[in-house]
């Protein structure tokens, strides 16, 4: 008997689109991403990459269609259930959203802010348990910045801050990581290293990874699935090996008007 264990969907968009006032940031789109998949979203600025990620982590609601995350339809979910779903989806935003005045360990410990109430979080921030600190230390060790455990975040370099944001995502113990252009402000060597690290963690822990990137070469080299967006529309959704160079050229060839507009939104 042949038993196939199909991986469940982490994210499922069914004709889901998002408008901001009269502008369509993402046209109705149907995509499904399975548990443990590694997907890169590529496209020029304003193509809808951030909107797609925002729909996945329920930061914004779909204007049309349906978004299902971990088996729960977001439009029908609220309150504690929604918070529980959100606590399983880690986000690394483009701006990293670190609190500069906090220590590195404090920023990382906020990764589990969705799992405890206000008092619990406050206690963690002021009187953390030894086990939690050790856990954070081992994550930082894996990322190569364990000596920064007690450093103030504002004193870190850009690359170190990115690793802290990554550590926070890992500490959250998520089922998925959404990374919005996490390497846009680091040099190529560090970008390569960070993308490799994220992919490694995703494979080892079976965490779904969705990353938006401008760097096509990085995307092609590390991700088995690429989704190309342009003007809010999916241009391709495939393994990079099945795509020819023309597809990528078409994606990034902008008219003069598009260059000036720098995206619709």
């Amino acid at each position: 008997m042949n038993v196939t264990h199909e991986r469940p969907d982490t994210f499922k968009l069914e004709s889901a689109g998002r408008n901001y006032e009269n502008i369509s940031a993402l046209n109705p789109t149907t995509i499904s991403i399975k548990q443990g998949e590694r997907v890169a979203i590529v496209g020029p600025s304003g193509s809808g990459k951030t909107t797609l990620l925002s729909l996945c982590n329920s930061t914004v609601l779909a204007s049309s269609g349906k978004v299902t995350v971990l088996g729960n339809e977001l439009g029908e979910t609220s309150g504690k259930t929604l918070k529980k779903i959100r606590s399983k989806i880690a986000t690394i935003p483009q701006n990293l959203a670190l609190v500069d005045s906090l220590r590195v360990w404090q920023n990382i410990i906020t990764g589990q802010i969705g799992c405890r109430g206000f008092l619990g979080n406050l206690i963690d921030l002021i009187f953390p348990s030894k086990n939690k600190i050790l856990q954070i230390y081992s994550i930082l060790e894996r990322l190569g910045i364990e000596e920064k455990l007690f450093a103030t975040t504002s004193n870190l370099s850009g690359g170190q801050k990115q690793r802290v944001a990554l550590a926070r995502a890992i500490y959250q113990n998520p089922q998925a990581i959404l990374a919005d252009e996490p390497v846009s402000s680091v040099d190529p060597a560090r970008a390569e290293n960070l993308v490799q690290l994220l992919n490694q963690i995703s494979e080892e822990e079976n965490i779904t990874l969705i990353m938006s990137l401008h760097n096509l070469e990085l995307a092609k080299a590390h991700f088995p699935r690429l989704i190309g967006l342009r003007n809010g529309e999916v241009q391709f959704d495939s393994n990079p090996a099945n795509l020819n160079e023309n597809k990528f050229k078409e994606l990034y060839t902008l008219s003069d008007r598009e260059i000036l507009d720098d995206g619709k939104c």
Partner: peptide, 18 residues
């Protein structure tokens, strides 16, 4: 940071205070 905390399941008061 407040918006990120809300997106990962924190309540509005926690995300504001922290």
């Amino acid at each position: 940071a407040q918006e990120l905390f809300q997106s990962i399941g924190a309540g509005f008061f926690s995300s504001f205070c922290l």
